[in-house]
Write a protein that binds this DNA or RNA. Structure first.
Lengths: 245, 245
DNA sequence: TTTACTTATTTCCATGATGGATATATGTCA
DNA sequence: TGACATATATCCATCATGGAAATAAGTAAA
């Protein structure tokens, strides 16, 4: 290769094939809170490697697509969902994490209200919504349960899921991501349930109410929930970050 | 390609060259606090593209090296440093972020006490330690200054640096990363200076002292600083996370 | 040796956030 | 109409924090 005198000439001469390169994938941790427990959407692999086992929905990143765009495409194509809150999580790059070849995976997590998963589960029978149980030990080990028991995850996806849960727990009480797990209108009770499910603790009700209200994130709608056989709670809406705007 | 009946056969048949793949790089944000201001180590590019401009030290990830190992290797080879606190930051994957080809960059940040940079700066004249000034507007824009004025960064490295500063600011008061920016023994004043430099605010001294002391992170040494022309402060040592152990 | 000086360290108090018990309000349903 | 169950409000003790002020402990000059 010659040494070109200027940058344009250099680029024209540049050979991108000079070195072997790893594949880059995006894996999605699609999370929600279902029946008082965190849950993640998993897919059953149809092909080798690890055919039949459960994994996070994912796919490779083509040459002409931004990482974030790839995440959204996989959300739509593989999980039949859209409009989720999406955030890049961590990049996993151990040499042997995939038996086929070197694959570096950029993990994203995506948060959705529980009811939004119904369509996805119907559209694709290879998907399941797995409950994430806290390990009996206080430690950070996770167990995913499907319809019939404990679900082991293929590749290093259990670790990815664990990192996602840790991130979620870390962010929930200083950011407003909890609202991404709730429908547009919700009661304070529902908001508290989400916090309790993610953190794995039970919270004091008046204190929680106070805290949320004077964060300025809640917009009262004046409406009340229906269908309860007792005093219905007021419905609130998420008022997006009044501080930042 | 045939459809193999078992996983071993499938892997034997698998062609990793079937699709074009991006290059993967690791870029390092090497940070410290120097003279009361955050600073980052920058390198002057010797080659195209952007020859002569300033960038974060970085390099490509070969096929047989874990991401974390690549970060440590670059720390050692490109920055002539070792033993830094290293943490993965974020992965940047816009299609056109590098004019040569598609490069996905996994950014790490690394924290070091200010005095550790001296050897690196001597060993490699293409390195400089740039001061990071807060933008006059309250916003999160950053300016890097070198010996002779404002240093613009090539590629998307200004954005990477900005993400690193944001992460550092976000973590400094609930984690113990501040200690990675200090020598083994330090005064409470020095610890507070680090916090103030990162956060860009001045803190209340007695409150800061109390907070740090009952976090349990500080181990008194009984020794005192020397060379001050007034009452010398006690030297403390970092006692690594008493909670986690 | 003593005193001025400067910063470290401690003490003290006011304030605001939080945990938690308790009281009150307001729906549904028998 | 009243029992019931939960929402919502009130109240108080406790703890973390900001900040002023007092005290301690070195150095250096008188």
């Amino acid at each position: 290769m010659t040494m070109p005198g200027n940058e344009a000439a250099f680029l024209a001469d540049y050979d991108p094939q000079a070195y072997d390169r790893p594949s880059v994938a995006v894996d999605l941790v699609l999370m929600s809170v279902v029946d008082g427990a965190p849950a993640a959407l998993l897919a059953q692999r149809a092909e080798h490697p690890h055919a039949g086992q459960w994994v996070l929905p994912g796919g490779f990143v083509p040459m002409n697509e931004d990482l974030d765009a790839a995440a959204r495409r996989i959300l739509s194509d593989k999980a039949h969902l859209d409009g989720a809150y999406i955030e890049q999580l961590y990049t996993f790059g151990a040499v042997d994490r995939d038996p086929r070849m070197r694959v570096i995976s950029v993990a994203y997590f995506a948060l959705l209200p529980a009811d939004r998963f119904a369509a996805a589960l119907e559209a694709d029978p290879a998907l399941t919504l797995a409950r994430i149980a806290f390990a009996p030990s206080g430690e950070d080990r996770l167990q995913a349960r499907g319809r019939q028991g404990v679900l082991p995850l293929a590749f290093d996806h259990a670790e990815i899921l664990s990192v996602a849960m840790t991130r979620l727990r870390g962010k929930i009480d200083y950011s407003d991501i909890a609202f991404a797990l709730l429908p547009e209108r919700f009661t304070l009770r529902a908001l508290q349930d989400v916090h309790e499910a993610i953190l794995g603790v039970s919270l004091n009700k008046p204190a929680f109410r106070r805290r949320m209200l004077d964060r300025g994130w809640l917009q009262p709608t004046g409406e009340r929930e229906t269908g309860a056989s007792f005093r219905p709670a007021e419905l609130f809406r998420h008022r997006p970050s009044p501080v930042t705007s």
